[in-house]
Design a protein around this nucleic acid. Sequence first.
DNA 1: CAGTGGTCTAGACCACGCC
DNA 2: GCGTGGTCTAGACCACTGC
Lengths: 244, 244
Amino acid sequence: MTFDYNQKQPVYEQLVDELRKSIKENYQPNDKLLSEREIMKKYSVSRNTVRQALNELEIIGYIYRQHGKGTFVANWATNNSKIGDEYSFTEQMKALGKKPETKILEYSILNANEYFAKRLNLSPGTKIIKLKRLRKADGLPMMIDRTYIPYAKFSTLSVEDLEVNQRALYSIFLEDFSEKVKLADEDIYAGICSEKDAGTLGILVGSPCLMLRRTTYNPKNEIIEYTISCARGDQFVYNIKYQH
Amino acid sequence: MTFDYNQKQPVYEQLVDELRKSIKENYQPNDKLLSEREIMKKYSVSRNTVRQALNELEIIGYIYRQHGKGTFVANWATNNSKIGDEYSFTEQMKALGKKPETKILEYSILNANEYFAKRLNLSPGTKIIKLKRLRKADGLPMMIDRTYIPYAKFSTLSVEDLEVNQRALYSIFLEDFSEKVKLADEDIYAGICSEKDAGTLGILVGSPCLMLRRTTYNPKNEIIEYTISCARGDQFVYNIKYQH
DNA sequence: CAGTGGTCTAGACCACGCC
DNA sequence: GCGTGGTCTAGACCACTGC
């Protein structure tokens, strides 16, 4: 068995796909996998390529390796959800089997005041876009996002894409504006719901809520987004998985 | 310049240290680094080794690479705190310049009831250790942890180590019991403080608080810890950084 | 076009776990 | 001693960037 070297996808990625398929079909958790040298022979690739593929599989939690013993299949219970990705409402709701939905409550262009200028690392007065979104799951209001992004970078952002096509904001950043999220810095804390948001979320004023504050950076360390979210405390659980 | 091949530390790790030092002393953010081939010559190592070192530096956010252009120094503002690590109260408080302190409120051995047996994946009635800890920062009570671990694995756990030596639980797991944390699964949600905890934390009953529920797994997918924490909403902020 | 990072090969030795 | 994963080398070609 060999791979196609003329494809756009590198060989080690093709190998990752092959191994994933093979594991899915033929292995149980904690089974011993083929050794690196056996994989070399089977797929006619060099050891470096095998190790590159195995590294990927290790990172996504599909396998674990033990020096002197071998490579083993990890328990996939841990593999259904993405690990180490920044928070995505849509992804989390899907993982819970709920139907996510996003409604745009506000889209406006404003001049940054002192506070938002500082948060976005811009000069006060610079134009920014404010986006207020209501997130629902199975029809139930779950959280309100207030997102602030620099107008200069995203002037042609289409509200229709967000609402009608229900595209994820980060997909639009990446696909339409080539802005890659390199780092997301999140603060999570407990708070009390404001009167305004309580009405929108359909809960009592003063109910406990989960507050999220997020700043995201591109590879050049420019800030591409600042978001404050308020989630209802009686419904919303934020889940993270850390892999080592 | 060459490296010592007889050291326990692999050459690429030595190269990582060298490059970190060099970057710290001679480079500014977004400066262009030596090319991979120049590093090869300078340190007399092969390209693979250089790339292994650069991969590490990329993962910890020290550098970023651009195909066809070069390798660049990232802004270290993002590098002071560890990225992608599971939550550690002690580490976070240190990062904020606060003095962390842990007080053991309870250490007991009990038989797991239905609930905890399920959470730890044990049979009901199995012996487990309960550990209740109060976390303070600069003398101020911040959160209460209730940790449940299987007695079979950690029967010789020393409370003195935790309290007098202020050792981190995970260091003890790793160093004294060879239990490595492979995956941490955390739920974060907003809640209301119980009467009992309100007294300990010095806040009013019914105050909003941040609740954390954590399950950690070793590489074999055995559960090594289940912890529920309650943090005061007026003081405590949970910070995470995601790197891509 | 030259220079960069991205991928790949073939072969070597070491360190660890197990019999 | 043998098989495993971990590290390392020397050399090659490709794809992308910018002049």
